[in-house]
Write a protein that binds this DNA or RNA. Structure first.
Lengths: 153, 153
DNA sequence: ATAAAACCTCAAGTTTACTTGAGGTCAAGA
DNA sequence: TCTTGACCTCAAGTAAACTTGAGGTTTTAT
């Protein structure tokens, strides 16, 4: 409140300010920086200074995370943006369109799973080789972290 | 193939056999056992012996995982079953009904997110405080592992 | 009787996405 | 000036769900 530049210009933001405005912890901002998701300049005293674009970038990151995109992919997507580190509305349009497809696929997968589940409720058919629920086929359903078990058939 | 008991009775299974039939790795079976998800008897030589029910139990675990239920909850659900360690068709009906609700909720959340995303594609509205995408509200979207950031507003 | 395949235990490693802590620096108000 | 509060850098911890490895025992097939 006190250090905000009087005229509402593009004054740089400190980590604390970015944290407050974006809703992510300071430690997370540090972390994102090490992961190459955001960047910062330094003040004479070696403190991080962000331009306001970082807020938009973080917004994009958070949306992507809610969709279920891992940080590595988010980073890759942001890296592919032609406009350096300032995502434009057009960039956002492209990203969000791609991610929407991703989301569509996830929703479809889960919906299919749900339908099978409905079919199987109460039927007791959960046999190892017969039930469709047991044999994923196209439905991947991998969204945890860590090494995933590769279904080997 | 060779050691299967001749008459197709309820002969106990070794870890390797369970692994082969269920599609999960031996190490995973060990792991599930330490987590209390499955149980085993021991042979005179201290090797694990499973009754066939374990296959059904594993089937249930895998379905639940695909739905997105964490192992801890799966364990809790299985523990709550009245019938000891052999889930009956009725048990399965109850579990799957509960999990279907869970799945329904997840699908709804993602669908809502997708709709917002569609609204926002190209509009460039991704401003920190205005956009609905940025302000989760009811949509939790937490499905990663590890400590989650608690949205503090 | 043996050799090879399958098991056993326990400790430690892996990935993702962060957080916590220690030990020290910078900036701003009283 | 001095005392906070905000920052900085590393290193290490956390949680989930497993995997890998070392060192040793059982089974099983020959």
């Amino acid at each position: 409140m006190k250090t905000e530049s009087q005229f509402c210009g593009p004054a740089d933001l400190s980590v604390g300010q970015v944290a407050a405005r974006s809703g992510v912890a300071v430690s997370t901002l540090h972390f994102y920086e090490t992961k190459g998701l955001i960047a910062s300049r330094r003040s004479p005293g070696n403190q991080r200074r962000y331009s306001r674009d970082v807020l938009r970038r973080i917004a994009i990151i958070k949306v992507a995370q809610r969709i279920g995109i891992p940080l590595s992919e988010i980073r890759a997507a942001l890296d592919r943006l032609p406009n350096g580190c300032v995502p434009t509305a057009k960039d956002w349009a492209e990203l969000s369109a791609a991610w929407k497809d991703d989301l569509d696929r996830r929703i479809e997968t889960l919906t299919r799973l749900r339908d099978h589940l409905s079919d199987c409720i109460g039927c007791g058919c959960l046999s190892i080789d017969a039930c469709r629920l047991r044999n994923p086929g196209d439905e991947q359903g991998s969204q945890g972290p860590g090494p995933r078990f590769l279904e080997a058939n």
